[in-house]
């Protein structure tokens, strides 16, 4: 692999981490969705580049799924849901932006230390990809815990899945089964979530998960 190919792959995977950071501090739902669309778009580019570098045509399918399904269909659908629910107000962050960013930096450092240390044998591209992918996964988890709103938790979860796709494509020659399954799982997850959101809306007039917490069986 030439160094240019490596650099571009590196750049794209790094941009994905950057997009995750951008999601951390968005305080409006629409803005969060737009950044998510960007996130998925970068993922599509990154996967397509991997397909080219590894000469693995089946990865183009994964890239296409990321582009069409994750970067276009889901954000548009969620936009509509948000509009219909009338919740395009601010997201309440559970902890402050500064603290969240610091935690995010810590998580990225952690994943670099862990992944780079355990994979000295693997080729450079796979190593970097895994380290970036773990960062994206951990940042996705962070988004999920710092948000209270159900929609933004879902967006956090989807960004986490993007990290998994990055890891799966970085692992050279991984059977297609897994890529398709990831795409499928997102689809299924989305349907489930959609149903849930509507039911939650129907019952609570709010998608704030804290509303749900009040009905905890044990807390009375």
């Amino acid at each position: 692999m030439s160094s240019l190919q490596f650099d571009i792959a590196h750049l794209l995977a790094g941009s994905l981490v950057l997009a995750s950071f951008m999601m951390l501090y968005q305080d409006r739902l629409y803005a969060l969705l737009n950044v998510y669309a960007l996130h998925a778009g970068v993922l599509a580019l990154s996967v397509a580049w991997q397909a080219y570098v590894q000469q693995a045509p089946h990865l183009y399918v994964t890239a296409l799924i990321a582009l069409v399904f994750k970067a276009i269909i889901i954000p548009v659908a969620l936009h509509r849901i948000i509009k219909r629910l009338g919740i395009h107000r601010e997201i309440e962050n559970a902890i402050g932006v500064g603290l969240t960013m610091m935690a995010g930096i810590g998580l990225v450092a952690l994943s670099m230390v862990v992944m780079l240390r355990v994979t000295p044998g693997a080729d450079a591209l796979a190593r970097e990809d895994l380290a970036f992918a773990l960062s994206v996964v951990l940042l996705g988890l962070l988004i999920m815990v710092t948000r209270r709103n159900a929609v933004s938790q879902v967006v956090g979860f989807m960004s986490l899945e993007n990290g998994l796709v990055l890891a799966a494509t970085g692992a050279k020659g991984m059977p297609l089964v897994v890529e398709i399954s990831v795409a499928f799982s997102v689809l299924i997850a989305f349907i489930v979530i959609g149903i849930f959101l509507f039911r939650i809306r129907e019952r609570f007039d709010s998608v704030d998960v804290q509303e749900l917490d009040r009905f905890r069986g044990e807390r009375r």
């Binding site: 994979t119 693997a122 895994l130 773990l134 998994l164 799966a168 692992a171 991984m174 897994v178």
Partner: peptide, 9 residues
């Protein structure tokens, strides 16, 4: 899944 990918790696 991440663990599974690492096993494959």
């Amino acid at each position: 899944l991440f663990g599974t990918i690492l096993v494959y790696m």
